[in-house]
Design a binder for these strands. Structure first.
Length: 408
DNA sequence: CATGGGGTAATTTACATCGG
DNA sequence: CCGATGTAAATTACCCCATG
């Protein structure tokens, strides 16, 4: 990471804009524990788990708002680069779309199953040979399934999302994703352990994600004796390219060389804030420089191509504004969230996969209307020279590659 | 205070059963 | 046959605690 241009910590933990003050996430977690999760055996733990889900939801709806909805798959199996014996489920992966189609689906009161969609599709000259249907539902009891897979083939998945609606029809996006992703994201949240002054032990678990980030992509990290992070990528003829990591990564993203792109996966980590991620300096001040990162934060920053920080302020604002004290317009969000965690409740309808359909609409609108502010909830830890907009641009670049040629 | 071990809750998937 | 519902198994993500 580059230390020449350290960002002031204020930028990292407390973005300047809105001047409203928000409670710290630690306090909100305690509040959640007391109010929402009192009935569980370990309220704080359950609250922490729920906060983890919220980090995922925020990240997912940011991606949606960036126009990547149809590129996303959730919790799909990803083989290690060059080592197919080991695979991992990754939270979000972004995939090339090989073909897509808009289907007018007659509105119905009933649930919308993969089967019904496929049946409607067969009348529409959309070739389904070689595909095996799933038994998932796009819409069930008013709950939307994000990244809903309706059929699978050997190398692709066929997914479905709701594009828009008319009086009689739902316009459904049918799109075929190539299984090999060009990017992946993992979200992690770690809370402060009660009574602990130092960093969290639980972060050991985050190393699992760091491991995946290091083995997923053909672009691998390697350090030289001077401590510089180098990137190495093998081409199909066995030759390799070795040069400074960020430089090589940019080169691959900018290139149209199938040889470089075919197995490349941009890895992105999203960690929510933690009071002890960063050490104090000799004066007892918090300043943002790499040597003051706790070991665990460095491990993550060195493992992912991109490491993002979801700030305390951002997560608090999301919880406070939409879940704790929603406006009239947003009160369904609160209701959906609370009912999802009510005692005896079986089905959660506030997760990255299952989301109440009205809540989905409200979240999309909120993210669209407040995109700039929400982007301010994230800070880039690595590469330290880049911004979130750079990441968006890189994802967009990858999305627009001519993948059909690359994989033919 | 770093580390390893441990436990619960949440979520998803696969499979079974029920009812039309 | 088909979809809805229920249940067990598998996986993951949290937090807590004992030890040295």
């Amino acid at each position: 990471m580059d230390e020449k241009d350290p960002k002031p910590l204020e930028e990292i933990v407390q973005p300047a804009q809105p001047t409203i003050s928000y409670q710290s996430v630690d306090k909100l977690q305690r509040l959640l524990a007391d109010e929402v999760f009192k009935h569980t055996k370990d309220p704080k733990k359950a609250a922490g788990r729920a906060l983890g889900t919220l980090v995922e939801v925020i990240t997912y709806y940011l991606l949606k708002t960036w126009g990547l909805n149809n590129q996303i798959s959730i919790e799909q199996r990803l083989e290690e680069y060059g080592n197919t014996l080991i695979s991992h489920n990754v939270e979000y992966s972004l995939h090339p779309i090989i073909r897509s189609y808009v289907l007018n689906f007659p509105k119905t009161e009933k649930n919308i199953t993969a089967n019904m969609i496929l049946k409607t599709l067969t009348g529409e000259s959309f070739d389904l040979t070689g595909m095996k249907k799933t038994n998932l539902s796009l819409l069930s009891n008013n709950i939307l399934r994000n990244a809903c897979i309706i059929a699978k083939s050997e190398d692709t998945n066929l997914l479905c999302s709701i594009e828009s609606e008319t009086e009689e029809f739902l316009r459904l996006h049918i799109y075929e994703q190539y299984k090999k992703p060009y990017a992946m994201l993992e979200c992690k949240r770690v809370g402060v352990e009660e009574g602990m002054s130092k960093g969290p032990q639980t972060i050991e678990k985050a190393k699992q994600g760091a491991y995946v980030a290091r083995v997923a992509s053909s672009l691998q990290k390697i350090r030289n004796g001077a401590g510089d992070m180098q990137g190495i990528i093998y081409k199909s003829d066995g030759e390799f390219i070795l040069k400074p990591f960020v430089e090589l990564m940019e080169e691959i993203i900018n290139s149209d060389d199938g040889d470089l792109l075919r197995q490349f996966i941009l890895t992105v980590g999203v960690v929510s804030n933690h009071g002890n991620w960063i050490k104090r300096d000799a004066d007892g001040d918090l300043s943002f420089s790499e040597e003051l990162f706790q070991k665990e934060l460095m491990v993550l920053a060195n493992s992912y191509d991109w490491l993002l920080f979801l700030t305390d302020q951002g997560l608090s604002q999301f919880i406070d504004e939409l879940l704790f004290k929603p406006t009239e317009e947003h009160k369904i969000l609160r209701e959906t969230f609370l009912s999802s965690y009510a005692e005896g409740k079986k089905k959660n309808e506030f997760t990255k996969v299952q989301m109440n359909i009205q809540a989905d609409g409200l979240l999309l609108k909120y993210f669209r209307d407040n995109l700039q502010m929400i982007e301010g909830w994230f800070n880039v830890i690595s590469p330290s020279t880049k911004t979130l907009t750079n990441l968006q641009r890189e994802l967009e670049q990858l999305k627009n590659k001519n993948w059909i040629d690359i994989y033919e």
